[in-house]
Simulated assay, not measured.
Amino acid sequence: MTLLIAGLALWCAAHLLRRISPETRARLGGSGKAVIAGLLVLSVVLMVLGYRGAEFVPVYTPPAGSGHINNTLMLISVFLFGVGGTKGTLYPKIRHPMLWGAVIWSVAHLLVNGDRASLVLFGGIGLWALVSMALINRAGAWVRPNNGRGIKGDAMNLFGTLVLFGLIAMVHKWLGHPVFEGSYY
């Protein structure tokens, strides 16, 4: 659990630095992006190693059939991650699409994982996303972006979502957590 908590703390600190201490982030200058990126990669490695090595301590039993809800929420989550990049019809309508994607990702995983390490990892990432949205909202009013690509952006995002979801499912199966098999439910 130590590695998991350290990774989660590093993830939060690296992401929130710009919001909590803009002066510190500004002092890092352009090279600060590389430093932050390196810290984020390290945080992911620590979280993965910590989660995989954590003792399984059950906290609650996930509801039967929750795997189907998880998969649906994950499709929505992955789609939201792509909204800003593909600039479809939702782009000017949803503030913080990636952070909302992280919240939905968190909820989806908490539906099917009732152990302590999952509560720390998925609950922690969800909490980080909510705190990030609150800090960004507090910093100023949202200036809605221009419409972007419209339906073409949505089509690009949908295609990318399906491909990425397929890759995510393959990685989960490779790690021993099959997304579409009965043992997952």
Rank of each mutant, 00 (worst) to 15 (best):
F122K: 05
G182Y: 11
M98P: 01
I104F: 04
W105N: 13
M170Q: 13
E55T: 15
T72W: 11
E23Q: 12
G30F: 08
V44D: 06
H177A: 14
N157V: 05
L3G: 10
M156T: 10
G123P: 11
V44I: 15
V41D: 10
V103I: 14
H96N: 14
M156R: 09
V48T: 12
L16W: 08
G38W: 07
I76F: 13
P58C: 13
A129W: 03
G65C: 08
M170T: 12
N157M: 09
S31A: 13
L119E: 07
G53C: 11
A155F: 11
P63C: 05
G38D: 05
G153V: 05
S183T: 15
K87N: 03
G126R: 00
M47H: 04
V48I: 15
M156D: 11
L158M: 14
L127M: 09
F56N: 12
A139S: 15
G32Y: 02
L80C: 10
N113Y: 10
S118R: 01
V112D: 08
I168H: 05
I151W: 14
L99N: 00
A6F: 01
L99W: 07
V57C: 10
L90P: 06
V48L: 14
D154V: 09
G160R: 05
G30S: 10
G32F: 08
N146V: 12
V131W: 03
I136N: 08
W142T: 00
A117C: 09
I104V: 15
P178C: 05
V44G: 11
G84W: 00
P58E: 14
L8K: 05
L4P: 04
G30K: 13
G182V: 13
A37I: 12
R116E: 12
S106T: 02
P178F: 07
V112L: 08
R19E: 13
L175W: 06
S132P: 02
P22V: 11
G150V: 06
D115M: 04
V57F: 02
M1V: 10
W100Q: 08
T161G: 01
M98I: 15
M133H: 06
I104K: 06
